[in-house]
C-alpha cells in the first residue's frame, strides 16, 4: 500500500516542483501517525459499535451501509415494531419460562443490529445487578432472553429522508427473582 502511494506521488511529482514534492513526502509519516492514533484510541468509531464476529454472527447478514449504522432514535420515532412494543412484551410472556431464584435481580441488555430490511443479527449482552455492577445471570435466563430476541421478526425498517437505514436497537429486561418484570426502552 505504501509503495503504491509512493509511486503515485512520484508520478504526480513530475507535474509539480521539487519543493512541493518534498513537502508531500514529508506529510506521509504524519498521515501514518494520524491513522495509528485512531487505531490506538480506546474508543470505537461510535459508542456501542458491534463489529462482525465470525464465531457469533451470521456471515449472510446483509447491511445496506456497514460504515454508517445509525441508532434507533436517530429518526425520532423511537422503537418501531409491528404491533408496537406490546407485541414484544407478548412474545416474551408466551415464550419465556421464569427461573424462580431470589438472587436473579437486575437488568439484562441485549443490543443488536436491525438492517435496512428489518432483519436482525450481531446480538450482544451486558448485565448488571441492582447496584449497577456487572452481573452474571443464570445461563438459563440469558440464553432464553437471547433466543427470544433472535426470534423477534417484527422490526420495521427505519427511514430518514425516505431512505432506509441500518440501526442499532437494544432491549433491556428488568429481572426480579428470575422473572421479567419490564422490557425497555
Amino acid at each position: 500500500m505504501f509503495k503504491v502511494v509512493l509511486i503515485m506521488l512520484q508520478k504526480f511529482a513530475t507535474h509539480v516542483s521539487s519543493f512541493k514534492f518534498n513537502y508531500l513526502l514529508a506529510l506521509i509519516p504524519l498521515m501514518g501517525y494520524c491513522q495509528t492514533e485512531k487505531q490506538n484510541s480506546k474508543y470505537l468509531k461510535s459508542v456501542g459499535d458491534i463489529a462482525f464476529d465470525s464465531l457469533m454472527d451470521r456471515r449472510d447478514f446483509f447491511l445496506c451501509n456497514e460504515k454508517d449504522i445509525m441508532q434507533y432514535h436517530n429518526n425520532s420515532r423511537g422503537l418501531e415494531y409491528r404491533g408496537e412494543k406490546l407485541a414484544i412484551i407478548e412474545s416474551f410472556e408466551k415464550k419465556y419460562v421464569p427461573i424462580p431464584d431470589s438472587s436473579q435481580n437486575g437488568l439484562i441488555r441485549v443490543r443488536f443490529v436491525v438492517n435496512c430490511k428489518g432483519q436482525t443479527d450481531r446480538f450482544r449482552i451486558i448485565a448488571m445487578d441492582e447496584d449497577y455492577q456487572t452481573k452474571k445471570f443464570d445461563e438459563r435466563i440469558t440464553q432464553q432472553i437471547l433466543d427470544i430476541c433472535k426470534s423477534l421478526d417484527g422490526w420495521l425498517p427505519k427511514k430518514k429522508e425516505d431512505k432506509e437505514f441500518d440501526y442499532y436497537q437494544y432491549l433491556i429486561f428488568k429481572i426480579q427473582s428470575g422473572q421479567i418484570t419490564e422490557i425497555l426502552p
Partner: peptide, 10 residues
C-alpha cells in the same frame, strides 16, 4: 449521554 442512549447502564 451516548452510553445512556445506547442502554449501557454500566
Amino acid at each position: 449521554t451516548a452510553y445512556l442512549k445506547s442502554g449501557d447502564f454500566l
